[in-house]
Computed example of a mutant assay.
Amino acid sequence: MKLAVMMGTLCIATLAVVGCSSKTVAPDEYSGFLKDYSQLKEAKSPSGAEVMRWIDPKVDINAYTSVYIEPTQLYPKPQPTTKIPQQTLNGITGYYDQALKREIGKDLPLAAGPGPGVLVVRAAITAVSSKTEGLKPYEVIPIALVAAAVSTASGIRDQETTLATEAVFLDGANNKVLAQVVRKGTGKPLENDAQVLKADDVKSVIDGWASDLRQSYRTLKNK
């Protein structure tokens, strides 16, 4: 059961992001990063967020004594743009790695690579699209900028940053899939469609993933 909670909390949380919302990722928004989506089911993370998740019912979490965090991927691989430059993309994946290692490493030793007794976390920031009327993606890349449905009096619309993640947990000894999760959420709004997205604009979302993961793990560990 520990892995079940860990998987749920890794899902994107919108803590510290006022006014943001998150919905379950629809099948037509799946990126292809995961090998099999057929067993995913709707579930709630410990913070009450909606997720799509699958966990091997036979998994024994006590068999894993350390964790290896693979470098976060951008999937599908994006082309940098003026609104979302390569520096921003690198900053987002790099910060995701740091946050996971920082939080999980406080309670579970970090391994240098996969192996027996090692839980492997393989995560990606994945492309999302909006189907809501009035919302149109400016960039079809892993971090999508969408126009808010409500305009200001001057006609300038605030811009929302929408993130999605897909993650798989593997047995480090044999690469067996232990659990999978798909989530999306909304980050810090930008002032207008000309503002360049920076990694700082989504750090609060990423911090939420890592913090929730650690807190849930510690709760179970201390019972």
Rank of each mutant, 00 (worst) to 15 (best):
R183L: 13
K136P: 00
A123Q: 04
A144K: 01
R214E: 06
L34N: 03
I125E: 00
M52I: 02
P27Q: 09
A144L: 08
D36H: 03
V181T: 10
S211T: 13
G134Y: 06
D158C: 12
G172I: 10
K221P: 05
A26D: 07
P189W: 01
P85K: 11
G117N: 10
T219M: 14
K83D: 14
V18C: 06
V121Q: 04
I12N: 12
G134I: 10
K106C: 03
A13K: 12
A148Q: 15
S204D: 15
D212M: 12
T152S: 15
P78V: 00
L220I: 12
S154R: 08
V118G: 06
K58Y: 06
P57R: 04
V177M: 11
E191Q: 15
T162E: 05
P85S: 07
L100Y: 00
T165H: 07
K223I: 11
N174R: 07
V128R: 11
K83C: 09
A4C: 10
I69F: 00
E166H: 12
T165V: 10
E191F: 12
N222P: 08
F169L: 08
N192W: 12
G185I: 09
A63C: 14
V25M: 15
P137A: 13
A111W: 00
Q195C: 04
Y64L: 09
D193G: 01
I104Q: 05
Q87K: 03
T82I: 13
V196M: 11
V205G: 04
V168E: 02
K203G: 07
K101Q: 15
E160K: 12
S211L: 05
L213D: 04
K131H: 06
A123W: 00
Q180N: 12
T82E: 10
L108C: 05
A4K: 14
K2N: 11
L163G: 08
E50R: 08
A179Y: 04
E70S: 01
L197K: 10
P137F: 08
S66V: 04
A199V: 10
K41T: 14
K2Y: 13
K136R: 07
I55M: 01
K23F: 12
E139R: 04
L15A: 13
W209T: 09
A164F: 09
R157H: 15
M1W: 11
K83F: 15
K176T: 07
E160H: 09
I84F: 00
P57E: 02
L40V: 14
